[in-house]
């Protein structure tokens, strides 16, 4: 679907999921940091624990919605892995971000109705949504029910190992968020991509 050179790339269900996912992840980062450093970054420790748990459950519900949406709608095709020529495509995109865009070159993989993501976006989204988020959900639920975690793994607390792993994955999701927010400003105008995620229309 297109209108006046615009593409309708983000259907309502996807925008709702994206908005809720973003909100939950931001809350999880803030509360996660509050717990990890026992500081009151917006939340007191005791509130941070409760809010973190609730946000984690909400994130999981919306993650299931995301998976289901990708199974039953066309959106799933944007996450299909194509290994042939991958290295070359990635290098082209990195080259564009590092130097090409400053020389006024056009994007090697512009957004079209059949290509919503450039190669870097696509594989970073696949990594986050199909590896990091599931890992953080699984370890998060394990920590929510610590009795399900193996007590000792070679004399090391299973809870500790799970918590360390949860923190590492959570940290990389936070790094992704920062980069994602910045890269989203690279569009027709610095705010056009943010608007797209509200209206659904890519310009």
């Amino acid at each position: 679907m297109s209108a006046e050179g615009k593409l309708y790339l983000y259907p309502l269900w996807l925008r709702i999921w994206h908005g809720m996912n973003a909100l939950c992840i931001i809350i999880l980062i803030v509360t996660g940091l509050s717990m990890h450093y026992s500081t009151s970054i917006l939340f007191k420790f005791e509130s941070a624990v409760a809010v973190h748990n609730i946000s984690g459950v909400v994130l999981t519900i919306f993650y299931v919605l995301f998976l289901a949406g990708n199974l039953v709608t066309e959106n799933g095709k944007f996450y299909q892995i194509k290994t042939k020529g991958l290295k070359n495509r990635m290098q082209q995109q990195i080259k564009y971000y590092v130097s090409g865009m400053f020389k006024g070159e056009t994007s090697p993989y512009p957004v079209t109705a059949t290509r919503k993501f450039n190669p870097l976006q696509k594989y970073s989204y696949i990594g986050v949504m199909y590896i990091f988020v599931p890992l953080v959900i699984i370890t998060g639920f394990a920590l929510l029910f610590p009795e399900t975690i193996i007590e000792d793994v070679y004399q090391v607390s299973g809870v500790m190992l799970t918590a360390i792993f949860h923190s590492i994955v959570g940290f990389f999701i936070m790094i992704f968020l920062f980069v994602h927010l910045y890269v989203a400003s690279i569009g027709k105008s610095p705010v056009s991509n943010y608007k797209s995620m509200v209206t659904g229309w890519h310009s």
């Binding site: 717990m35 090391v156 500790m160 918590a163 590492i168 940290f171 790094i175």
Partner: peptide, 26 residues
């Protein structure tokens, strides 16, 4: 030492090395 300690307490169990790596990456 990480692998020789059995206790985990939220907010209390910190690994300085990991924290340093986190700060550097950030």
């Amino acid at each position: 030492n990480i692998f020789s300690n059995q206790y985990y307490v939220i907010g209390a169990s910190r690994i300085p090395l990991l924290n340093t790596i986190f700060v550097l990456i950030f």
